[in-house]
Amino acid sequence: MGRYILRRLLQLVPVLLGISLLVFAFLHLIPGDPAVTMLGDRATPDAVEKLRERMGLNEPLPLQYLTFLGNLLRFDLGTSIFTGVPISKEILQRWPATFELSVVAMAIALVIGIPAGVVAAVRKNSLVDNLAMGGSLLGVSMPVYWLGLLLVYLFAVNLQWLPPSGRIGINASFAPITGFFLLDSLIQGDFKALGDVLSHLILPALTLSTIPLAILARITRSAMLEVLSQDYIRTARSKGLKEFWVIGKHALKNAMLPVVTIIGLEFGTLLGGAILTETIFSWPGIGSWIYGGILQRDYPVVQGGVVFVAFVFVLVNLIVDLSYAFLDPRIQYK
């Protein structure tokens, strides 16, 4: 087991190496000189040249890549070309926003998606099933950008029930401790702030949860259907077990394997920062930051940001893989 984890962690090295190479290559393949982008419409060639020199852009590409890698090994992700803020600092500052949003979105997806899938499977072809599956199809196919704006218009502009953006009210006198606002407001026993934070979380979390929710419902349904036709379910039923336990314990647990895989993938994706959701709701997370970096050709931001996101993604999936052993005792790690 320990050896398995070690091996998986070692496998991270080539994965991250590959990612860093890809990111580096793609960034430098995109036309457009960051020095020109930075200096704007009026840059003189001389100034551009000076800035390129200072940014190290005149070095041969392989050398630039090796420098980047060398710094990476020392956990030095560089500094933003534009703001001069160290990448690692920016990640630390923005990570809690993205993490908090992802966790809440994932929680919504789990709490609604899995029961919906189970009910749909148990009541196959009923009205409930059709509603759930129709709804999830809608959820998967709805453009996030449009849905987000729609929710803002409905709940923030027309009904005025919820705030349209940000993590906390602008007039709130709230001093964050950890950066996770839900946790911070609880620690401080500040329930007014907690309500404020929650009200800000609802719309973006709902928007962000639609796709994982819909996928989870569909996967759960099909996995459940497969399990429900197994012999051991009939056995369980025939020995007089209550239907609730048959479904909840015998069937669901066995149907969870593919579901957990999807949870891991989806959660990893959410943690990578939801660019569109974060943009619509002015959510100061990782996604909107990397997006800004791409627009400005801020190489260090994009390189550092993507490598970090990839690292988190791979890590989450490692944890998911390890959790299989719980769900299916037949799985062993070697």
Binding site: A156, Q160, P164, S165, I170, S282
Partner: peptide, 20 residues
């Protein structure tokens, strides 16, 4: 005074209409 960063014009207008 607060200067709030809202990159998307549609989101900016929505927030103006919502009063934030």
């Amino acid at each position: 005074l607060v200067i709030s960063f809202v990159e998307d014009p549609a989101a900016r207008l929505a927030q103006l209409r919502a009063g934030t």
